[in-house]
């Protein structure tokens, strides 16, 4: 159970990205977060693993107060929260295998990392993760040699190395074409179904949210605009979230 209480984020320049957000997300739910650019979707996700430091409010996950965690505790918590990104955030010059194994760093003694050493067994774990996302044959390729969809799958494999209980996906398909978008979303769905991961996924397209999620959260100017089932978003709601002039674009 992830509990967000009165979460507010004000950036140093005074911009209020999140305004008093409160949410409860039970384990194993697939939650889509929608909203215009700048509505606070990324900030909300980044506050959960404190890549962005919240200004006010509390985030409690499985009884642990993330907002009050010390640096060490925070790293222990982050190990169980996977995150994938719009720009994939792979090290482009490193091999796919190295990128995937890097997901395990939180479990490894930092001194070993100085010598680029991974304990035995981690390589097999990484290969298994690549197997799950369907690209084991790319293990020795440079990450930059892969297509966008494949890079995002490497990103998913990297989070698998963390043994995550929750997955934060920050617009995971915004840089991909529609067909590849579905393939990536299907992998998220798979993790949600098979591993029981809680998935929080910010999306641009409402159609994707409708297709994959149990629940949709809509943000507008940092405020919670809608929280409910995907089917409850009718045209009126849609215009409230995206503005009067918006027209829904389907992605198949």
């Amino acid at each position: 159970m992830l509990i967000i209480e009165n979460l507010t984020k004000i950036y140093d320049n005074g911009f209020k990205a999140l305004d008093n957000i409160s949410l409860e997300i039970p384990d194993g739910q697939f939650v889509s977060i929608i909203g215009l650019s700048g509505s606070g979707k990324s900030t909300l996700l980044r506050c959960i693993n404190r890549l962005v430091e919240p200004t006010k409010g509390r985030i409690i996950w499985n009884g642990l107060d993330i907002t009050a965690a010390t640096d060490d505790e925070l790293r222990q918590i982050r190990r169980r929260i996977g995150m994938i990104f719009q720009q994939f955030n792979l090290v482009k010059r490193s091999s796919v295998l190295t990128n995937v194994m890097a997901g395990r760093l939180g479990y490894i003694n930092p001194i070993f990392s100085l010598f680029n050493y991974f304990p035995p067994g981690e390589k097999q774990r990484a290969m298994a993760a690549l197997q799950r996302v369907g690209i084991p044959e790319k293990a020795m390729n440079r990450a930059s040699a892969l297509s966008g969809g494949q890079q995002q799958r490497v990103g998913i494999a990297r989070t698998l190395m963390q043994d995550p209980e929750m997955l934060l996906a920050d617009e995971p398909v915004a840089s991909l074409d529609p067909a590849t978008s579905h393939s990536v979303m299907k992998y998220l769905e798979l993790l949600n179904n098979e591993d029981g991961l809680t998935v929080l996924c910010s999306l641009h397209f409402l159609s994707l949210a409708r297709a994959y999620s149990d629940r949709v959260i809509a943000l507008k100017d940092g405020k919670l605009e809608f929280d409910g089932l995907p089917k409850d978003i009718d045209n009126e709601r849609f215009k409230m979230i995206y503005g009067e002039d918006a027209v829904e674009v389907e992605i198949h």
């Binding site: 890549l51 982050r78 996977g82 990104f85 760093l105 490894i108 990392s113 989070t159």
Partner: peptide, 16 residues
Amino acid sequence: EALQSTGANRLQTIMY
């Protein structure tokens, strides 16, 4: 950012 989110510490983030 990606490696920080996996729980890697500062040294590991720099190395990888």
